[in-house]
Nucleic acid binder design. Structure first.
Lengths: 334, 334
DNA sequence: TTGTACGCGTTATCAT
DNA sequence: ATGATAACGCGTACAA
């Protein structure tokens, strides 16, 4: 009486066995009359089948989990939309979690979902520690990682060529006449923070440009604003390559507040091509890393692995694409 | 061998009973020596307890679900952050779902989570149909709704005085000298779309201003851009009150593209105070509805109801707050 | 301290 | 067509 009704009470109420109730609810062959009696009982009692009991019996929960570091960064909602799209064929709920940069919370989420509550896992972590990788290898459900890891690890992954992405932005800045190009980098502890910085340093070396990296403490707007202040104290370069779009937008805002004209006094590029990059004024030149496509590919890999858990791991890759807007217009231009 | 190991295999491997394994894993009193043997077996087999089995036995899953219409709208990630914050004391994973405006998908999510997979539910739906309300009343787990509904319904809710919010924006526009004030409204099928439009109409009547509503097809940037085009075709007012911030930012972008100067030629206000409202240029005047606080309050209501499922329903309310920025500066001003 | 046995709510098999 | 019953994996009285 106190808790929710179970199949047993429905059966009693309808005067049938629990087997019959189950059959009716799952559309198996039953006599129309008894089926109706069962449906009535269900209605009267307000019975809703317990998904946990069902999941235990069936071995699947019809849930897929998706974990990212920070849903407040629009690139991740784009990615999520891609995942949803790629999962559309499957009748499964997508459960998202914004775990923050704390490894502990991510591990907790992975543990909490991979314990049978979700049939598959897609994760896109900024920080990829050995502990996390080890945990992912032990996970008892199919898992797809969005990000680059050692292929030896044997995980399905979706990657993007961030080195090439940086080069696209760098070369574009050069082609618009900028010769001093600084980077506002991501947090040093993060994988994209490091790889994008390294790509920048290589580009500098290749073009004999003196590197200058101002690291931000997070991939968000206010960190970008603070980075601009530091950048300015050290003397403004002609261009700044931000490690992602939210940082770049923070830089644009801070430049505006400080009276620094973009693109005339300072050219700015971002990475990710979030929607607000287009909307902002000046519109942000950026490099799309195909977040939506990465999400869709990850979903595809997950589905295929859920069908065949023994196939060799695959790596899907998305090519970066330069999107030229106002924030890097040549100084002579309009 | 094929599937994941169960507690039975761990017990066999360690030469103990499953009860002992369970005790060791749950930190009950056991002889150190046997505890170690169990831990070894767990390590060797890579055993991870099945959360579904545990949830079935314990009657709780340590998950809380949060459903919103569109996570791509930053106001919802703000709200989510509030929920997380309010849930911090509880050791539970927060599972988020972006259900889209489709009622069917929302109902599916509610059903899929309230069936035992989640111990509680917080939902903030744009569209509140009788079918949804009925479904929420039948949900067998504690549920909190963020949004205004008939108190008769007997649901814990968190509301905000959107009428007052609209008035704040309206009066502010009047105080800066604008006399023709149009509204770019939300989708007519949504609850906030309707209530904000009605509040606007009442404000117009009160101040003897001719109302003009241009409805947008969605609460997002591109719908705002399109609404601006229609607004312009009909002749620009001195000010436009947008039904939310993403619409307002779309209007700002379209105005910019069209060469319409904000705030000189057109003043613009939003609702929600998303972070990008501050970052944008011109910075957007808006009305904060305390999304983060609403999330925190909802979490609090949920926790309290999880403790006492019989207490009478509560309604928590957050007061709107006007945030004045550049997009409504007086025409005479700089 | 440890083991046996039961039950959580469901689906599916095997009788009838 | 329907009913009795055995799992699914876990936690925990109760017995030893």
């Amino acid at each position: 009486m106190s808790g929710r009704p179970t199949i047993v009470e429905v059966a009693a109420h309808a005067g049938v066995s629990i087997a019959t109730v189950s059959r009716v609810l799952n559309g198996k062959q039953t006599r129309p009359e008894t089926a109706q009696r069962v449906r009535d009982a269900v209605g009267v009692l307000g019975y809703v089948p317990d998904g946990v009991g069902r999941a235990l019996k069936l071995g699947r929960a019809l849930h897929v989990a998706f974990a990212v570091d920070d849903l407040a960064n629009p690139v991740y909602t784009q990615m999520m939309a891609g995942v949803e799209d790629g999962l559309a064929s499957r009748k499964a709920n997508l459960l998202v979690s914004s775990t923050g940069h704390k490894e502990e919370q991510l591990l907790e989420f992975v543990a909490g979902m991979s314990d049978g509550h979700a049939d598959g896992l897609i994760i896109s972590p900024l920080v990829r520690t050995p502990a996390l990788i080890a945990a992912l290898q032990r996970v008892p459900v199919p898992v797809v990682l969005i990000g680059r890891v050692d292929p030896e690890i044997g995980l399905d992954t979706v990657t993007t060529d961030s080195q090439r992405g940086i080069d696209l932005a760098f070369d574009h800045l050069l082609s618009t006449g900028r010769r001093t190009i600084a980077m506002v980098g991501g947090p040093v502890g993060t994988a994209p923070g490091r790889s994008r910085r390294d790509a920048y340093l290589r580009a500098c070396a290749r073009h004999e440009i003196e590197p200058r990296v101002v690291p931000a403490r997070a991939f968000n707007v206010s960190a970008g604003e603070k980075a601009f202040a530091r950048l300015r104290r050290g003397g403004l370069p002609q261009a700044v390559l931000a490690a992602n779009d939210t940082l770049a937008l923070g830089i644009l805002r801070a430049a505006l507040t400080a009276g620094v004209k973009v693109p005339h006094d300072l050219a700015v590029t971002g990475i990710d091509d979030i929607e607000f990059a287009r909307v902002f004024s000046p519109a942000l030149t950026t490099v799309s890393l195909g977040a939506g496509r990465r999400g869709r590919l990850a979903a595809g890999l997950l589905l295929s692995r859920m069908q065949d858990r023994t196939r060799p791991p695959k790596v899907a890759t998305v090519a970066p694409r330069l999107v030229i807007r106002e924030s890097t217009a040549p100084r002579g231009g309009r």
